[in-house]
Write a protein that binds this DNA or RNA. Structure first.
Lengths: 250, 250
DNA sequence: TAGTGGTCTAGACCACGGG
DNA sequence: CCGTGGTCTAGACCACTAT
């Protein structure tokens, strides 16, 4: 299963051992062998199982921790990290206040529908033109008040069998991809803009009258899975009158 | 200089060797011992110099690479990375197009002035109320047209002696902090909002008439140095009619 | 061919957490 | 006390770059 490329003369190029180990563990996590917060075998057990040294296993685990797929606790073990939330590490804070703790957000499912990919969407997701898509709409609330509106677009053929009831309990899109398809999102590219909210979305965010003239923060997101597959295109509108979106920049 | 905490019985807690090595190298870089793109001594030479093993040096270098302070080229060496640009890894792209290459931005110095910290600013930068600050204003252009307006606020006591001419050639704030004070920015926390541009800033961005009613992207940034010091508070307004700000989210 | 970073091993010991 | 992750060493060999 795991083989070094140093031991095989004249063999075609192989990945380093620790990369093979990463992929091996990634597959086992995706297949549900360990659930969130489950402990993996110890570094030594994994090393024995795969006939490599503990240091090599350690290097693989360290990268998976950096990718956010695992977390470690000294003296206890290495565990499967909870799935990335639909907000990632982003927070909503008061503008200008960087040390504030955020409110918890709740997610309300609105609707799921089918449509065809726009040209930009198809290019970004590496699909053919007008490829069939699911559109999942969700409303985020903080302290009961609407704060953001999401439209997540997912390739219908890749995620065949998607059902509305999976979302009814307010579970996020990323959690659903993990639970139902074994897909873990690890990378996101986000574009930020300031726009006026499209009129038809305004009432969902509870805007009316003068508030219709308020600018909103538009976030366009391309989500990539742990195996490099582009799996989601998302449009989010955030009300930013009283809240700012915090990101730690890389 | 470098000492293990394993070899000293009953000694107070010491940092791991590789952390000491990081700090040691960080200081030597800050002091200008090596300039941008200069090669560091080889891992083996550094190991001999500090009487540690090559693997330990390697671990320190790997973390400095991850922090963006160094870069490596196999077969050649390890080099000092160019200073982070005032845009970090962020790019301006066409909305909805994630694979586009960005235009180069040019920086035009506008003015430097003295003022006192606002309350939010003082808290974020861990200064006393109304602490004296420098305000550096710069205008960013892409293909000749204004795209963003920056107001960088720097603690005047920490950066005593700051001069306007340091900025006249269009050099960024981060480059100046590196060159003049040996301070390297490595972490940034950014808040995004959508706002209407303050009237007095609009003409700097070339806005007039109906364009005054365009929303702009507001970015509020707290910059932290390689030694954890909070060194800058920045307000940026980005025109987002035709351009979106791309970030890779962590 | 020499010098660099990149991978891998085997073994040692430390620090933390929990029985 | 044991089992876990965390650090460190010494040595080996591979892969890339330049001369």
């Amino acid at each position: 299963m795991i083989q070094s490329h140093y031991m095989i003369a004249n063999a075609p190029r192989r990945q380093p051992l620790y990369v093979q180990i990463k992929q091996f563990l990634l597959r086992r996590i995706a297949e549900g062998e360990w659930l969130e917060h489950d402990a993996l075998p110890s570094e030594w057990d994994l090393a024995d199982e795969m006939s490599v040294s503990q240091g090599t296993v350690r290097k693989a685990l360290t990268e998976l921790v950096a990718d956010g797929l695992l977390y470690r606790q000294q003296g206890k073990g290495t565990f499967v990290a909870p799935v990335l939330s639909d907000w990632g590490n982003a927070l909503l804070q008061s503008p200008g206040v960087f040390d504030e703790l955020p409110d918890r957000l709740s997610c309300e499912f609105l609707a799921i529908s089918r449509m065809n990919a726009s040209d930009d969407m198809a290019v970004a997701l590496q699909l053919r033109r007008h490829a069939p898509m699911f559109r999942v709409r969700q409303l985020w609330r903080g302290q009961g008040r609407p704060v953001a509106l999401d439209e997540a677009y997912l390739p219908a053929e890749r995620f065949d069998g998607m059902e509305a009831r999976w979302f009814r309990s307010g579970v996020g899109v990323y959690a659903t991809l993990q639970q139902r398809f074994g897909v873990r999102v690890v990378e996101r590219r986000e574009q930020y803009r300031a726009v006026m909210l499209p009129r038809e979305d305004a009432n969902l965010l509870g805007l009316s009258g003068a508030a219709l003239e308020e600018p909103v923060l538009s976030l366009l997101r391309l989500s990539v899975s742990s195996v490099g597959e582009r799996v989601e295109w998302r449009q989010r509108y955030c009300l930013s009158r009283d809240l700012a979106l915090l990101q730690k920049a890389g």
